[in-house]
C-alpha cells in the first residue's frame, strides 16, 4: 500500500499534465469535427450531385479505415509527398477529419428525418430554400443529432488515446513514459484507466444536462 501511494505521488503530476493535453485534443478535434461535419452533412443532403459524391467518398474513406492508420498516413505518409505536420497538428487534423466524417453522417440522418412537411410549410410562407434550411430544418436536425453527437464527444475523448503512438504527450503518452520509468505498467495503466473513467463520467454528466436543456417540451423521448 505504502509503495502504491508513493508511486501514485510520483506519477500523478505527469498524468495530470497528460490529462490537460487529452482534453485539449478532444475539444479541438471535436470543434474541428463540427466545423467540418456541419457543412459536409448539409452538402451531402442539399448540395449539388457532384458535391454529394465528393462528401460521400470522404465519409466512406474515414469511416472505412482505422483511425490509427489515418493517423500514421497523416504523420508519416503525407511528408513523403511534401506535406509535413507537427505531431500535434497531425493529431488534431486526423481526429478532426475522422470526427467530421462521422458527424456529417449523423447530421445527414437527422436532416433526412425532419419531416418533408416542415420544408413545404416553410416554403409556403415564402421562405427561400436556404432560409428554410437555416431557420426551420437545421435547428430541428441539430436537436435530433445532439444525443448522437454527445456520444461522439465521449468516443472522441477515448479515441485521443491513440495519439501517443506518434509521441504526443497525452494521458496515455505520459502513462507510457511513467510505466517505463517506474517498471510498474499494470498499476500505472490502471491508474490511467481511472483517469479516463472520471473524464468520461464528467463529460457524460455535462452532456446529459445539455441534452435535457435542448429538449423540445412535449415531445417524446424525454429522459427524466
Amino acid at each position: 500500500m505504502q509503495e502504491f501511494l508513493e508511486l501514485l505521488g510520483n506519477v500523478v503530476p505527469s498524468l495530470l499534465q497528460g490529462t490537460v493535453v487529452t482534453l485539449q485534443l478532444a475539444a479541438v478535434s471535436l470543434a474541428l469535427g463540427v466545423a467540418i461535419g456541419l457543412p459536409a452533412g448539409l452538402g451531402r443532403v442539399y448540395g449539388p450531385r457532384w458535391l454529394q459524391r465528393v462528401i460521400g467518398v470522404y465519409i466512406t474513406v474515414f469511416q472505412g479505415t482505422p483511425l490509427l492508420i489515418q493517423l500514421f498516413m497523416v504523420y508519416y505518409g503525407l511528408p513523403d509527398v511534401g506535406i509535413t505536420f507537427s505531431r500535434f497538428a497531425a493529431a488534431y487534423l486526423t481526429l478532426g477529419l475522422n470526427s467530421g466524417a462521422y458527424q456529417a453522417e449523423y447530421l445527414r440522418g437527422a436532416l433526412q428525418s425532419v419531416g418533408e412537411g416542415q420544408m413545404t410549410a416553410a416554403r409556403a410562407i415564402g421562405m427561400s430554400k436556404g432560409q428554410a434550411i437555416r431557420s426551420i430544418i437545421l435547428p430541428q436536425a441539430l436537436r435530433l443529432v445532439l444525443p448522437t453527437w454527445s456520444n461522439e464527444a465521449i468516443a472522441m475523448l477515448k479515441y485521443t488515446a491513440v495519439v501517443f503512438l506518434i509521441a504526443v504527450p497525452d494521458l496515455m503518452g505520459q502513462a507510457k513514459i511513467m510505466a517505463a520509468k517506474y517498471f510498474a505498467p499494470i498499476a500505472i495503466y490502471m491508474i490511467v484507466a481511472v483517469f479516463y473513467l472520471v473524464l468520461v463520467g464528467i463529460a457524460y454528466l455535462i452532456l446529459r444536462q445539455v441534452e435535457r436543456r435542448a429538449q423540445i417540451p412535449g415531445l417524446t423521448g424525454e429522459v427524466e
Binding site: 412537411g117 416542415q118 413545404t120 410549410a121 409556403a124 410562407i125 430541428q140 436537436r143 423540445i216 415531445l219
Partner: peptide, 13 residues
C-alpha cells in the same frame, strides 16, 4: 398566398 395543410406542419421546434 397562405396555405394550410391537412397535417398542420407546424414547426416542431
Amino acid at each position: 398566398i397562405g396555405m394550410v395543410f391537412q397535417d398542420f406542419n407546424l414547426f416542431t421546434h
